[in-house]
Structure formats: structure tokens, C-alpha cells
Computed example of a mutant assay.
Amino acid sequence: MGETIPVAVPRKGRPLETVLERFARRLDVADLADEITSTLRHEKALTKGTLEREGTSVYHRLEDYSTVSDPTKPEYTLIRDDRTGKPRRIVFDSVTIPLTEVEGVSDGTEVLLVGREEPFRALRTHEFALGFDSADLVLEEVVELRPEPLDRIGDVNARIDPADTDVQVVTGLGDTVYHTLMGTPETVPSATSIDRDFLEAYQGELCIEPRYERLVQAVLGTKTLDGVDFSYPRDDREEEAAIAETGLGVYLTMTGSTARDHGLLLGERLFPSETVLLENESEITESVATVRTVLNGTDLETALAVGR
């Protein structure tokens, strides 16, 4: 009988979809990935109110979706969503994926995907050897703050103090968006590049999401932020609107269209944000290393490729 290797994954959203796409490509489980993704998108639409609520209760839908008797079928669970009224929302809980068709894997070896609100923290507490989470959380929690900026993703692991955690980044999955510096024409002089050099000479407010404060400090370096004061969007303001009001800020962009709609100029892409494969080095066994190899690979087109 082979081993079952648990892997922590996000419970919902783009990071979970990216992980499922990775498993679909590497392990030929496209139907399973599509089933989970479509179910969670449907439930998100119900929670947001963009889809008319069905006659069945959330508890009946949860029972219909989950197959407790067969671990190779997905199970789901309920959480309180942070939207108005705190509705209950169906999210991913677990599923088992056999690896019998993968070359070099012992017969009977399985991967158990386990949903976690914060997979990175579950790895830090040694609950899992492998997991997937946003690269942002690594910067927000464990990367050392230094005067010089963090320019390359390859430097992330070097900035993680091994006395603080055994978790390291293995690779990214390619679902890249960027933390981007942006400002208004009134704040940025004509023909001036909105980049780290501009920010180093800048004195004033920089609008960011509160949860990104440590990340921005790590990416820009504490020296660059001398004379800069962080401000934050009010609860009722969109991030881009708050940055336009402040004059300068950092936020995630993919196309930048929303920022431009608010009259903002896009500047330097400061750092890529991706879903990443993580490992707790102290928990790696031969079987875990084999699973890690299956999930890693040269086919990944990622800004976060750190290599092994």
C-alpha cells in the first residue's frame, strides 16, 4: 500500500484554480479540476448576489456536492464570507488524487489536497510538507526587511531566516499579476518615470493596502521609503480611487485598465504576485520529494522560478 501525501491548498479563488490547473496538466485530472472550479464559481456568484439564489439551502447544496464515501471525489465545507450579512459560503475541503499513472511513483501513492485558509501558515507549523499559497504571504510574514530593495524573486529564499521558518519557495505557477507603482499626473512631473528612483526622492504619502505594508517595505527597501508615509484606503473606497486621491500608491495590476479609468499613470512593476509551491524542508521525505518533482517542472512559465 502506497503513501498518502497531504498537500495544503487554498480553499477558493484564483490561487486554488491555478493549483487545480497544475494538477490537471500533470496528472490528467481535468474533469475533476473543472468540477471543483465550476462548483466554486457557481457558489461565489450566489454569495455575491450576481446569480439568483436557488430554492435549496446552502446545507442541501453542500450535501449534494460532497461525496464522503469516495475520497477521490471532492468534499466541500462552509465558511462565513466577509460580505454584507456574513453569508455562509461553500468552499473546497479535500480530495484524493492517485499517482499510479506517473512514472517513477510507487504503486498506491496518493496526494490528498486539503483546503486551508492560510496554507503557508500550515506549513510553518509543520502540519504539511508541501503546499500552495500566494507569494505575497511569504513577503508579508517572513522575508527580512533591509535597506536595499528586493529586486528578484530568486532572492526571496535568501531573505528567509532559517531560524524563523523551514518553509521555502520551490516555484511559481505562472498566474502572475504585479504590485505596480502608480500615480496621478499632478503628483508625477511630466516625462518623469514612476519608479524606485522617483520614490526615493519623493516626500509624502504612499497609498497601499494595510496588509501589504511589510511586503512594500521589503520590495522597495527601507532606504527608499525614508520620508514616505503610508496611507490606506477607507473601507468604502476602491484601491485605485484611494490612490488617485492620495496621488501615489502601490496596488496589484494585470492590465492596468482600472487604474487608468481613475486617471492614474502606471509606473514600475515592483514585484510579481503568483501562487507558489512551498515546502517545509524539515518535513521532506523521499515520497514527498517525488510528489514535489511531479508538481514542479520546466513547463512552468513563471516570474517566480527559483530553480532547484
Rank of each mutant, 00 (worst) to 15 (best):
D82H: 08
D82M: 07
R83N: 07
R83C: 00
R83E: 08
K86M: 10
K86C: 00
P87N: 05
P87R: 14
P87E: 10
V91Q: 12
V91M: 02
F92K: 13
F92I: 05
D93P: 07
T96N: 09
I97Y: 09
L99F: 06
L99H: 10
E101K: 15
E101P: 00
V102S: 11
E103I: 12
E103K: 14
G104D: 13
V105P: 00
S106N: 10
D107N: 09
G108Y: 08
G108P: 02
T109Y: 06
V111D: 05
L112G: 03
L113T: 05
L113W: 06
L113H: 04
R116M: 04
R116V: 00
R116F: 03
E118H: 03
F120C: 00
R121Q: 15
R124L: 00
T125Q: 11
T125E: 06
H126G: 04
H126C: 07
H126Q: 09
F132K: 05
D136I: 01
L137M: 08
V138D: 13
V138R: 03
V138L: 14
L139D: 04
L139P: 00
V142S: 05
V142G: 09
V143S: 09
V143A: 12
E144K: 14
P147C: 04
E148W: 06
R152C: 04
I153S: 12
G154L: 02
G154F: 00
G154T: 14
N157T: 07
N157F: 07
A158P: 01
A158L: 12
P162Y: 08
P162S: 10
P162E: 13
A163L: 07
D164M: 08
T165H: 04
D166M: 08
D166T: 13
D166C: 02
V167D: 03
V167Y: 10
V169K: 03
T171L: 09
G172V: 05
L173A: 12
L173F: 05
G174D: 11
G174A: 11
D175L: 10
D175W: 04
V177F: 06
T180H: 07
L181G: 09
